[in-house]
Design a protein around this nucleic acid. Structure first.
Length: 889
RNA sequence: GGAGGCAUAGCUCAGUUGGUUAGAGCGCACGGUUCACAUCCGUGAGGUCGAGAGUUCAAGUCUCCCUGUCUCCACCA
């Protein structure tokens, strides 16, 4: 767009008319792509990569909005700014989606296709949904550098994954081991502890007799919620020192239905108070029993497989589904006289967080990351403050997790993901872990090599995100320039899943923290405060909101009132308020635009400025300071509400109104000055607002003449306003504040007395603050206070009779409105007396405070001074009221 | 069981290291066809800041305790 070509703004604010056009313009100009060689200080954010499972939801919209605000802010402040976009392959989640799709549309499973063909299908899916996510990011206005778009399974990132795996393996930090892990029979894979979703369900305790060998008719009773696991029992444990069972320890029991002989052991893990005090031990299917098994050298008998069917070891129950087997076993126990009773109970049971299936704990061989050595430096880094959480309380979450961390199970029995780079020799059993595929066994030379079938946990690759996306393991310019990144913006729900892993991986492989700050936001909930979810059907699609209200309104609604770490509700009222604000800004800008006759904006010299000009500049300057300080603290919501108040209450409701008189004096010097100040403040405000509402601010900016200081083709690349001490005008500001207070008081009084706006009255302003009420201010009374005429004097004694006028007292002035027929002297007296009492109350409160030696001695001087100033104002008001009262008959 | 959050106007929420007469949006009441905007303008009502105690010259803000509510982590056979 021609930088000198300005245009009128259309009458209605219609974001659909310009949002896409402006976004394309920014892309074409390459504003989102930084130059790595640029010497200015870097600012970098890597996006928390959305899963390629579907489309963006409100949570993403919030996350991207906050990031874009920071990125645009820093870019305008002159930082060399990079925001890396990308997506996550999301192992299980995506595989399940694609399998579901196959089932519904083609009636087949992944096994029908085979691994290779299935993966092709997943890649097709990824292309489709990955692109959709990118275009949604763009709709929101995200200023990501799309030339650096990343994907966790791209070649480059896969190289990084392999290198990390091999390095950790060689350091002994990755090992293969037998553990009780949670298996999802539906997904047919192990899932990590963090992916277990515990839910309370109604279940039962089955009390079962286990006969004692060689003691006819004697038995112990155990209680279990999962009777089918008895097939794998290899002991019964009692608490050490439990006198009831002391003589049992060492005896042998006969496992019912199975006939296996199992010992009674004593183990500290048993709570004698709970259940029967005797615990059946199934080391292969319960984490606690597994530990007990290790202590007592018990055999692990796996009786349930990964699909929740009974294994060969389960004898006659082999092949049965676990719940079918449970039924049968209970029936058989009952028939055999082993069942004592069934006791109803509710207990919490692990469910798959993806598909909701009840999980089965199974002992199996898996790959693990040894966490202790990695966690320690990661804890230290946060403790030292290398990386800090905003708000700080989330560091407690982090410590709590990291200090109690368990080894991380990283293998998954899936097809979609990074295949584990471990190669097994069928001849000699050698395991080779290598970055490059292995074809020949390095130990025996055999060619019978098979790669591990499993893939890595999806968080393994996203743990490397802050450096893999910048080119690691290659030593790139990007890494040198932008690592460590500046801030990570994410929700509190994935601090443990993801943030903690990036921290220890970054420290391990880059030798440095991955980011300086972790800016945590909450969840976006629905209008009733419920989590948005598919099952509830209460999700709101950000794209629909954008279509209806515009991306700026959506961004505003998400950013305003949002405070770090706290959940927020999204409602129609909120988005409407946001749209209304955009509309307000649009119309104010339209007003300024249509009154401009100048083609360059230049701030007039101070001595040319009217008091209200200085007032608005002073206010604007304070706004700059506030917005900057709050953005620097990640107080995005506070910064934005300061902008809202300024635009609506200060700029529109007062300043614009105050300029109208001058603007109507066409071609006068005052008119030109007002135009310049209006445009100057508007342009500055647009810049402050641009990070939050990029589209509307750009569209308006394009329509305005800019002038020497801001003669740019886009607001995006303009400088963010800086606080300027030369724009402080405390005295003139005070003058204008007094004026505003008086106008407000007149309006209030007129409303109270039911004087219709059409009824104009003369206004007598009795004041000692002549500078606040000079002749230049008379038009303000005519326009804003329904005045027909204005007179200002130090005293109106003998000019107007108080009994015929409504008297309005502020600290700066007493105003007389001659509306004799509406004035009831008795009422007037009563009202003033009441007001006086209230004012005197304040005076005595303040006097007491100021008379308190402790206060004067200990409070900061500025606070004491402010209280004194307040007291003076109240005293002036009180005096005014007394005066007014004395004039009444 | 361990950790943490929240509780402020009818509703939804701000309130930054303690320091004006505690604010906003929506809603409500009254009044407005002012030439930017009815997606608007003006005026107003409405709060003992969950209960109690403490620290301090000063507490919505800090400490303790209680109540209600939500979240995360662990998880009992």
């Amino acid at each position: 767009m021609d930088q000198n070509q300005t245009h009128e703004l259309p009458k209605t604010y219609d974001p659909s008319q310009f949002e896409d056009r402006l976004y394309s313009m920014w892309m074409e100009k390459g504003y989102f792509t930084p130059d790595v060689k640029d010497e200015r200080p870097p600012f970098c954010i890597v996006i928390p990569p959305p899963n390629v499972t579907g489309q963006l939801h409100m949570g993403h919209a919030l996350d991207e909005t906050l990031q874009d605000i920071l990125v645009r802010y820093k870019r305008m402040q002159g930082f060399n700014t990079l925001w890396v976009p990308g997506t996550d392959h999301a192992g299980i989640a995506t595989q399940i989606k694609v399998e579901e799709n196959l089932r519904v549309n083609e009636g087949i499973t992944r096994y029908d296709l085979g691994r290779e063909e299935f993966l092709k299908r997943v890649w097709d899916w990824k292309d489709k949904y990955g692109n959709r996510i990118i275009s949604q990011l763009q709709k929101l206005g995200s200023s990501c550098d799309f030339t650096r778009e990343a994907f966790t399974m791209s070649d480059n990132l896969s190289d990084a994954v392999r290198k990390v795996f091999v390095t950790l393996y060689n350091k002994g930090l990755i090992y293969r081991g037998l553990r009780i892990t949670n298996v999802c029979p539906h997904c047919n894979t192990v899932i990590s502890d963090a992916e277990v979703d515990y839910q309370e369900i109604d279940g039962a305790f089955w009390h079962i007799r286990y006969p004692i060998k060689g003691e006819e008719g004697k038995y112990v009773v155990v209680a279990t919620t999962r009777p089918e696991t008895m097939l794998g029992d290899t002991a019964v444990a009692v608490a050490p020192g439990d006198e009831r069972f002391a003589d049992l320890v060492g005896k042998t029991l006969i496992l019912p239905l199975v006939g296996r002989e199992i010992p009674v052991i004593s183990d500290e893990n048993v709570d004698p108070e709970f259940g029967t005090g005797c615990v059946k031990i199934t080391p292969a299917h319960d984490p606690n029993d597994y530990e007990t098994g290790l202590r007592h050298n018990l055999e692990n008998i796996i009786v349930i497989d990964n699909t929740a069917h009974i294994t060969e070891a389960g004898g006659k129950y082999a092949g049965m589904d676990r719940f079918e087997a449970r039924k049968q076993i209970v029936a058989d126990l009952e028939a055999g006289g082993y069942l004592v009773k069934i006791e109803k109970c509710t207990h919490s049971v692990g469910h798959c967080y993806r598909c909701g299936t009840i999980l089965e704990p199974v002992a199996s061989r898996q790959w693990f990351v040894k966490m202790k050595p990695l966690a320690e430096p990661a804890i230290e880094a946060v403790r030292r403050g290398d990386t800090s959480f905003i708000p700080d309380r989330f560091s407690k979450n982090y410590f709590n997790w990291m200090e109690n961390i368990k080894d991380w199970c990283i293998s998954r029995q899936l097809w979609w993901g990074h295949r584990i780079p471990a190669f097994y020799c069928e001849d000699c059993g050698e395991i080779t872990v290598a970055e490059k595929d292995v074809a020949v066994c390095p130990k025996c030379g055999s060619h019978k090599i098979t790669q591990d079938e499993d893939v890595l946990d999806t968080w393994f690759s996203s743990a490397l995100w802050p450096f893999s996306t910048l080119g690691w393991p290659n030593s790139t310019e990007e890494l040198k320039k932008f690592y460590p990144t500046s801030v990570l913006v994410t929700g509190y729900d994935i601090i443990t899943f993801w943030v903690s892993k990036m921290i220890f991986m970054g420290l391990e492989f880059m030798g440095e923290k991955p980011f300086s700050h972790v800016f945590i936001h909450g969840l976006v909930r629905d209008a009733q405060g419920r989590k948005m979810s598919k099952s509830l059907g209460n999700g709101i699609d950000p794209l629909e909101i954008i279509d209806k209200y515009g991306a700026d309104a959506l961004r505003f609604a998400l950013a305003t009132g949002n405070s770090p770490g706290n959940d927020m509700r999204f409602s129609d009222e909120k988005i409407e308020a946001a749209r209304n604000f955009a509309n307000k800004l649009w119309n104010a800008s339209r007003f300024v635009r249509m009154n401009l006759t100048i083609d360059k904006v230049e701030l007039p010299a101070a001595d040319k400025l009217a008091a209200e000009d200085k007032w608005i500049l002073d206010k604007f300057n304070a706004l700059v300071a506030s917005v900057t300080a709050n953005l620097d603290k990640y107080e995005v919501g506070v910064a934005l509400s300061a902008l809202y108040d300024f635009v609506w209450d200060v700029f529109c409701d007062w300043y614009i109104e105050l300029t109208k008189a001058r603007l109507n004096e066409k071609e006068s010097e005052g008119c030109l000055i007002a135009q310049n100040v209006l445009a100057y403040v508007l342009i500055g405000t647009l810049k402050l607002l641009h990070p939050f509402m990029p589209f509307i601010t750009e569209e308006i900016y394009q329509a305005l003449p800019h002038g020497a200081a801001c003669d740019l083709e886009s607001i995006m690349i303009s400088d963010f306003p800086k606080y300027d001490a030369a724009l402080e005008f405390p005295e003139e500001s005070a003058d204008t504040e007094r004026l505003i207070a008086v106008i407000r008081a007149i309006r209030a009084r007129r409303t109270e007395m039911n004087v219709p706006p059409s009824r104009k009255t003369k206004v007598y302003v009795e004041t000692k603050y002549a500078s606040s009420f000079g002749e230049m201010t008379y038009p303000f009374f005519l326009r804003l206070a329904s005045a027909s005429e204005v007179e200002v004097a130090a005293s109106f004694a003998g000019v107007i009779s108080a009994d015929d006028a409504a008297q309005i007292v502020t600290d700066a002035a007493t105003v007389y409105l001659p509306i004799s027929e509406l004035v009831d002297t008795a009422k007037e007296k009563e009202r003033l007396t009441k007001e006086l009492a209230k004012t005197e109350g304040e005076i005595s409160r303040l006097s007491a405070k100021l008379g308190n030696a402790g206060f004067v001695a200990k409070a900061p001087a500025a606070v004491v001074e402010a209280e004194r100033a307040k007291l003076v104002k109240y005293e002036e008001t009180a005096e005014g009221i007394r005066n007014a009262l004395s004039k009444l008959k």
